[in-house]
Amino acid sequence: MTTRDEILTAIRDHRPASRELPQVPDFRTAADDLIGLFAAALARLDGKTITQPPADLQQWLSQTFPDASRICSAVPETSGTSTPADFTDWAAPADLDVTVVRTPLGVAETGSILVTEKELGVNTVAVLAQHLVVLLDPADLVENIHLAYRHPSFQDATYAVLLSGPSGSADIGGVTVHPAQGVTTLTVILSPREREMA
């Protein structure tokens, strides 16, 4: 028996018995206004929440981003000049003005939205565009990050990212600049998703 084998055998013979990991609480509180909590948290990070969805999303996009010539729509609620399927590689969305996507999950305490490869198609459409517009069903809001990590979208995704407002950077004096890189604006529209009829 080699020295290596002796060491590995000694480790196997003397390892401690396995035991269950401790249960992590979900830290739920009595928060009853998840929408207000979400909007306030997102506003602190220079994001914007629209609580009443526009009657005509296409018209709202035209009015809100009048100079946008390249709009990528990853949702059926509106059309753009492109969809994620039109991009052949990660760098192709580099000159997008606006990306519109639906999130499967919002986190009230942090003002975060989740996007995965399922929603994006090409992951970079969420960070290379100048403006990101996210549709969020209020029913998809959870109170905190502990509950968010238990969401099935995290379990099923290869790529998952929580976004909380446009990117910012603070210098040593505590002055925050928005945006530092990534999207210039992040707007979340509370828009119930269409439910399939049973």
Rank of each mutant, 00 (worst) to 15 (best):
A31E: 15
P25K: 05
R28Y: 05
R28D: 07
K48C: 13
R19L: 12
R44K: 10
D46V: 05
I11L: 11
D13Q: 14
E6Q: 15
L21M: 15
R44G: 06
R44L: 06
E20Y: 11
L8R: 09
D32N: 11
R15V: 12
A41S: 10
R4K: 14
R12Q: 15
D33F: 02
A17R: 13
T3C: 11
Q23W: 13
L21R: 15
L34S: 03
L34C: 00
A30F: 06
A40R: 09
D32K: 11
R28G: 08
R19A: 12
R19T: 12
T9C: 02
R28L: 09
A10L: 08
V24Q: 12
D33S: 05
S18A: 15
I7W: 01
L8F: 10
K48E: 14
I35L: 06
R4I: 11
P25W: 01
D26H: 09
P25Y: 04
I11H: 02
D26I: 06
L45W: 01
R15Y: 06
L42C: 04
T9P: 01
L45F: 03
P22N: 08
G47V: 03
R19V: 11
I35K: 04
I35M: 04
L42W: 00
I11G: 06
A40N: 06
R19D: 13
D26Y: 05
R12L: 10
L21S: 15
A40C: 02
R15H: 07
F27R: 11
Q23P: 12
P22W: 09
R28E: 13
T3H: 15
T3E: 15
L45D: 10
E20H: 15
V24C: 09
G47S: 06
E20T: 14
F38M: 00
I35N: 01
L42M: 02
T29Q: 07
T29K: 10
G47A: 05
R44S: 09
G36F: 01
D46E: 12
D33E: 04
A40L: 03
L34I: 01
A41C: 02
V24P: 07
H14D: 12
L37I: 03
P22L: 05
I11C: 07
A17I: 11
A41W: 00
I7A: 02
G47H: 04
A30M: 10
T2N: 14
I35Q: 11
P16I: 09
D5T: 10
L21C: 13
R12F: 03
R44I: 00
R4M: 07
A43K: 07
G36H: 02
P22F: 08
L8S: 10
